[in-house]
Design a protein around this nucleic acid. Structure first.
Lengths: 333, 333
DNA sequence: AGGATCGATGTGAGCGCTAACATTGGTCAC
DNA sequence: GTGACCAATGTTAGCGCTCACATCGATCCT
């Protein structure tokens, strides 16, 4: 390990003081052009990298934010994470990440402690788990945090794509095609997203006076979708189904294929997420697309306004988009 | 923001020096039981949190490692990332992450600069792009780094699941079923993983004296798989196909379905990755599974041995596993 | 008894940076 | 010409911690 090149070293090499080097880095306009060039040259020559650790200590600012997430296997989670990460980088923030297997209290607590020790300036939670919010509540952290989830709770800052609306759009699409018995395969009940999607489905049906059946619950996995799909096929009660994510929908499609049901002829199917695979399901899936890139930037800007106390950010909800493919068709008479 | 509670504050409250507080935290056994209790009490009372920033500056150790990745949309990449993240956390390391859209020089350079400034103790690259390695080479970073990729280059530390072997297994499976004309849909040519898988397919065919056709190239997406699938269906030359990842394979399946080809009756298909969806493709996909969790730990332990210079770590290759489902069948006479 | 040893604690310096103030030399106005 | 001013740079003091060393009794050995 070569010992670190410091500002003084650079200053020495350029024949100036360390403070001038600091100025070149922080407020270049306050330094003479010629000096600046000399310093920049020395920086390059010595391969100087400013220590952001020392900087953080001196300024009491780390320009880093903590990210806690669970269930990254979920397409929507990993998308959110990636999008946020890029947004943060674009804003000059560094993200320190903790991916946990589950939203248990202990690991969350521990992760948060580490992050706080790192003096992150904000925390983003990509954890679609109601429990996580309770834990967060009880922790009284004193940095701003944003929950990247469709929220029920209004006392927190959350940024999300409007899951409720998306679910209504999906359900409306089926209803518009003439379907009246529309089943729903929901996500796990601890998931906020799942709750919102369920609510959207129910609300849309009610607003049209269509019968609301008991929803079936899955756990986001294709397996659970397959099982619920078999049940659905057996019941024979429905002509359409809206499943709360594309992975479960794949399982549903599989189950229907196994039972000899044709989609969309015998049954219309809508998913949620528009994962890259969805366009190539058999048949290609009608689903609800979310713009995660935009979401990432919104999370970041909300967090920024919180950190800089410019403004109390309002909950932001962007609109999802229905992508119609081949898994839905008008109800046969 | 309340001003920070420091070690001296705690020391003062407990009637000892700041150094004793430090000792209580770092080497408790060297402090008198009674004093220790008093200090711990004060810590609790004042809600003291040690500043890991100051600590890092004093010790010149951050216990953090940088992660650079691109193409996180790819299942295998995001899996590697998650697995590594959890492994790092288990080893008491914090991971600072930079997810880039592409492996261009500029952004890579920038990300690396930031990471180096953060004084990370190591770098992990989850970038399956040959170009990335060249860039890395030209950068001469002076912290250890590990490339989480099947490597060609022996001068770098890389940890990977043996893609070559996996591809051979997939191909051998098809050959064992009696197939002789076995096509390959490869990943993009800049991808190391793709190159290894292609090599595995070719090697296996050659070792059995089977004809090696010109491989088709996709870009990992279902769309590209669909297109190559249509070409394959049109050619009518093959009875089996091995595609370099499951997403492309889904497209292939879709194309075959569109052309009225039945899998596995008319054509056997094998994928690679075993994404969660694979078990519910229609038909359920025979594919090659990789144990990413183990991989994550291996990356971490390789990195650790590099950081601590305990040992020059050998390239590690773990074995993948063939998962036989319903997309492959014996060749019909 | 005198020094060697040891456990328990304190002291001071320094990690690499920034912030605040000090210094220098030139320009301008009267 | 003298003071006021300003732009460009230097000097000094921390930020909160750890490390190396100093101190100080008490214990032990010969």
């Amino acid at each position: 390990m070569t010992s670190r090149v410091t500002m003084s070293d650079v200053g020495h090499a350029a024949g100036v003081s360390h403070q001038t080097v600091s100025r070149v880095l922080n407020e270049p306009h306050r330094v003479n052009q010629e000096t600046r060039d000399r310093v920049n040259d020395a920086i390059k020559r010595l391969k100087y990298h400013r220590s952001s650790v020392a900087r953080a200590l001196a300024m009491n600012r780390t320009k880093s934010i903590g990210l806690i997430s669970t269930g990254l296997a979920l397409h929507s989670h990993s998308k959110r994470m990636i999008a946020f990460n890029e947004a943060a980088r674009a804003s000059g923030y560094q993200v320190s990440m903790a991916s946990l297997p589950t939203a248990e209290r202990e690991p969350m607590q521990a992760a948060l402690d580490v992050l706080m020790g790192q003096a992150v300036e904000g925390i983003v939670l990509i954890v679609a788990d109601k429990r996580a919010l309770d834990i967060l509540d009880s922790l009284e952290l004193d940095v701003p945090f944003v929950v990247a989830d469709s929220g029920g709770s209004t006392d927190k800052h959350n940024v999300a794509i409007d899951q409720f609306l998306g679910a209504r759009m999906a359900t409306a699409h089926l209803a518009d095609l003439g379907h009246e018995r529309i089943a729903h395969i929901a996500g796990p009940d601890w998931s906020l997203d799942a709750t919102e999607r369920l609510r959207g489905w129910r609300t849309e049906l009610e607003s049209r006076g269509l019968p609301v059946s008991e929803p079936l619950f899955g756990n986001w996995t294709p397996e659970s979708g397959y099982e619920r799909g078999l049940e659905l096929a057996a019941s024979g009660e429905f002509t359409a189904v809206f499943a709360a994510n594309d992975q479960m929908t794949l399982g549903v499609l599989h189950a229907f294929a196994d039972r000899g049901m044709r989609v969309p002829d015998d049954m219309s199917v809508v998913g949620f997420d528009d994962i890259p695979e969805a366009a190539h399901f058999i048949p290609p899936l009608t689903t609800v697309r979310q713009d995660f890139v935009q979401l990432g930037f919104q999370i970041m800007s909300t967090l920024l306004s919180l950190i800089e106390e410019t403004d109390i950010a309002e909950p932001v909800h962007t609109e999802p988009e229905l992508v119609v493919r081949k898994s839905t068709a008008p109800r046969r008479p």
